[in-house]
Each structure stands twice: as structure tokens, then as C-alpha cells.
């Protein structure tokens, strides 16, 4: 219970500071819009073809835009040595990490909820009837991005090339989760059979469970040593 309360306190702190400053979310949403614009120059497709690749495009946008938020997650604590203060506080490394994860999760989901309808409008993609299932896929895929991204954000926070290192390390690690999310989104948008694509759901869940446990176990080493 205490674990949860302190975790939520860290998450609330991050969310409050983001709501007041709005620096990461604003940048992330703008970046998502820029990618949407760039896609329009990259290809000129028929509506059926767009539906086939919509899942992939969506998750590329989510992953790219999400990294901006993840990059700021620990970097924002460097000013005034806030990270040292947080580590010195009675909050454990796992609580700090989990709190930051929750805050990042909410922020990335906000960016996704803004960019999804914009994507649908710009590219004339009809969102699936089973919208709740698409949200479930978004919830699962985003957790994968968040948990790996937050841990690697903690790992790279003190590096000179932080902004470069994070995406280079995170994207290859995320591939199983991204592929799972892309395939499920594609199946939902094109109306393909979900039973045939159930394996991707399992991969996504397995990825999330494994890396959440691993991150919680190793985060103390990453943050404190």
C-alpha cells in the first residue's frame, strides 16, 4: 500500500509539472503532426492500401513521439540536482521508476489519443468498429514503450549524447512489442480475423510482463549502483 502511495506521489509530481509547463506534451504532439505531414510526401496511396499500412504508420508515430516524452522524463530532474534529491528521499528506486513510468504512460497515451483521430482524418482511415479493442492494443503497446523507454531514460540521463543514445538503444529493444502492436492494429483496422492474430497479443503481453519485472528488479542498480 505504501509502495503504491509513494509511487503515485512521484507520478503525480511529474504529471503536475507537465500540466503546468506542457513542454514535453506540446513538443511531442507537434512532432507527431510533423511526422503525419511527412508521411503524406513519402507516399500517395489508395484508401485500401492505406488501411493495410495504417497500423504500422500509427505505431511509428507513437514510438517517435513517445521518445520525446521519455527523453524528458529523467532529464528534467537534472536541473538543480533534483535527481540526487529524489534518490536521497525515502522513495525506493523501484517506486521512483514506477512512478515515472505511470506519468510517462499517461502522457504518451494523451499524445496518442490526440494523434489517432488526426491520423484518421488526414488519411481517410475509418477507425475500426471495435474501437475498444484498438484502445486495448494501444494500452498494451504503450506500456511496452513506456517501461523500456523509462528504464533506458534512467540509464542514459547522465550521458553527453543522451538525446541520441535513447532512441538508438530503445527502438531495437522495442521491436517485439512494436511488431505485436502493429500487427494487431492492422488486423483491427482491416477487419482481419483476430483469432489468427492472437499470437501477437500473447507476444505483447509476454513482452510487457517480462520487461516490467526485469526493469523493477534492475532499476535500483541503474539509479543508485
Amino acid at each position: 500500500m505504501k509502495f503504491l502511495r509513494q509511487t503515485l506521489a512521484v507520478a503525480a509530481k511529474d504529471l503536475r509539472s507537465e500540466i503546468r509547463g506542457k513542454e514535453a506534451v506540446n513538443a511531442s504532439v507537434s512532432f507527431a503532426l510533423v511526422i503525419l505531414l511527412l508521411f503524406s510526401f513519402a507516399f500517395d496511396l489508395e484508401p485500401e492500401q492505406i488501411r493495410d499500412i495504417a497500423g504500422g504508420l500509427l505505431w511509428l508515430i507513437f514510438a517517435f513521439a513517445g521518445t520525446l516524452i521519455l527523453n524528458r522524463s529523467f532529464a528534467r530532474e537534472l536541473v538543480n540536482d533534483c535527481l540526487d534529491a529524489l534518490l536521497a528521499s525515502p522513495v525506493s528506486g523501484a517506486q521512483l521508476f514506477f512512478g515515472k513510468c505511470l506519468a510517462n504512460y499517461v502522457l504518451i497515451l494523451i499524445v496518442e489519443c490526440i494523434s489517432l483521430p488526426v491520423f484518421a482524418i488526414f488519411y481517410n482511415v475509418r477507425l475500426p468498429q471495435r474501437l475498444a479493442l484498438l484502445f486495448l492494443v494501444m494500452l498494451l503497446g504503450t506500456w511496452g514503450i513506456t517501461v523500456i523507454g523509462t528504464l533506458f531514460s534512467a540509464m542514459t540521463v547522465n550521458l553527453r549524447l543522451r538525446e541520441l543514445m535513447l532512441p538508438t538503444l530503445v527502438y531495437p529493444m522495442l521491436i517485439p512489442a512494436l511488431v505485436g502492436a502493429i500487427e494487431l492494429s492492422r488486423a483491427l483496422i482491416t477487419g482481419a480475423s483476430l483469432a489468427e492474430n492472437f499470437i501477437w497479443f500473447r507476444i505483447l503481453v509476454a513482452f510487457n510482463v517480462i520487461f516490467t519485472i526485469l526493469s523493477l528488479a534492475l532499476v535500483e542498480i541503474v539509479l543508485v549502483g
Binding site: I203, L218, I221, V222
Partner: peptide
């Protein structure tokens, strides 16, 4: 420390 953590993460990925 950090490369050890990355090595463990990478090996889990290899399982996939």
C-alpha cells in the same frame, strides 16, 4: 553497471 544491465536486457530479447 549500465552495460551489464543492457546485456541482461539484450539476452532476454535474444529469447524472442
Amino acid at each position: 553497471r549500465l552495460s551489464a544491465v543492457l546485456s541482461i536486457f539484450a539476452c532476454v530479447d535474444i529469447v524472442l
